[in-house]
């Protein structure tokens, strides 16, 4: 997923689940923050770029490289913050120039993605950047580190790597990352800073409303899931009770004969249905009723054996549930 160099960290690894998006954005906005904030989730990464407190860019990229921008990215971020249950937030301060480069990068177009550095003819690629007078960015990265080289009209503008607060002229960090095993590169074509619309997304999007709607949707989803789970539990309990009822009928029928099922039905209906089988007081009343009826039909020895069998069956069923 998209990994930017870290810049000057203001906050790192804040737990997203404890944060509210409107509060975060309000804090960064009112503080006149310039830089970017990244939200790292298991499935996606979201980057918000601020320039003097204005939210100038929002980008979401999932693990498959699929991207969403602007309003969609903000909505998706709200949804991830509410529903993901994990994720971290980082805030890195950058210079205005570097911020605008990042902004341009995020608004730009991906030309090459995740190319193994050792498989690339880097010289001819850089030659093409120069010849085409490209505005763009070459990102060199591994799983852990990232560095960027910005180009303006084919000429290197400067470097951005972990710990930088501004565009730097030293290429040593970039070279170091390029030398790491498994290093890859992306090449992005960016628009010129002048072409990027300086819209403040906080002014055009009602973040509070997005957040509230997302929370409400998430809550309704939780409610629906809970309801479904409850229904499933009830259904499973009903099924278990029905199985238990059938077991009881078979036992009583075995001793009393075919009228046994009728006797069980009658006693169950008098004691509030088959739920009395797992209720201690209800089961005692149920057993007393069965015994009273059985006294008219079978011997005391058989009654005793039947009652013992019923008790052990119900006890087993209770311990299993």
């Amino acid at each position: 997923m998209f990994l930017l160099p870290k810049g000057n960290p203001l906050f790192e690894n804040l737990a997203v689940t404890k944060l509210k998006l409107p509060d975060v954005l309000l804090k960064l906005s009112t503080g006149g923050f310039t830089g970017y904030s990244s939200f790292v989730f298991q499935t996606s990464t979201v980057i918000l770029v601020f320039e003097a407190g204005k939210l100038v860019s929002a980008l979401l990229e999932d693990r498959n490289g699929k991207r969403q921008n602007g309003f969609e990215a903000l909505s998706a971020l709200a949804e991830l913050m509410v529903s993901s249950g994990s994720g971290t937030m980082n805030v890195y301060k950058l210079s205005k120039d570097l911020t605008m480069c990042i902004h341009a990068l995020l608004e730009g177009e991906t030309l090459y993605k995740a190319q193994e550095l050792k498989l690339i003819d880097i010289n001819s690629l850089l030659g093409k950047v120069k010849n085409d007078r490209m505005n763009g960015c070459l990102r060199i990265y591994t799983e852990e580190h990232s560095a960027m080289i910005f180009y303006k009209e084919g000429n290197p503008l400067g470097f951005f790597h972990d710990g930088s607060g501004d565009i730097e002229s030293s290429s040593s960090e970039s070279q170091k990352i390029a030398g790491l095993p498994g290093a890859k590169i992306d090449l992005f074509a960016t628009q010129s800073v002048e072409e990027i619309m300086g819209i403040n997304l906080l002014e055009v999007a009602n973040i509070q409303k997005i957040w509230d709607t997302t929370v409400a949707l998430h809550q309704s989803e939780i409610d629906r899931t809970n309801k479904e789970r409850q229904e499933r539990d009830i259904k499973a309990a009903t099924l278990r009770l029905a199985e238990l009822e059938e077991q009881v009928k078979v036992i009583v029928g075995e001793y009393v004969g075919k009228v046994g099922r009728g006797i069980v039905d009658k006693e169950l209906s008098e004691n509030g249905g088959n739920s009395c089988l797992i209720d201690e007081a209800g089961f005692a009343k149920f057993l007393a009723g069965i015994e009273r009826a059985a006294k008219l039909l079978i011997s005391g020895t058989n009654i005793k054996a039947m009652m013992e069998k019923l008790s052990s069956t119900i006890t087993n069923a209770r311990s299993e549930s």
Binding site: G257, V259, L296, L297, I298
Partner: peptide, 9 residues
């Protein structure tokens, strides 16, 4: 007829 499979039938 109703209780013919019980002990007392």
């Amino acid at each position: 007829l109703a209780i013919k499979d019980s002990d007392i039938s």
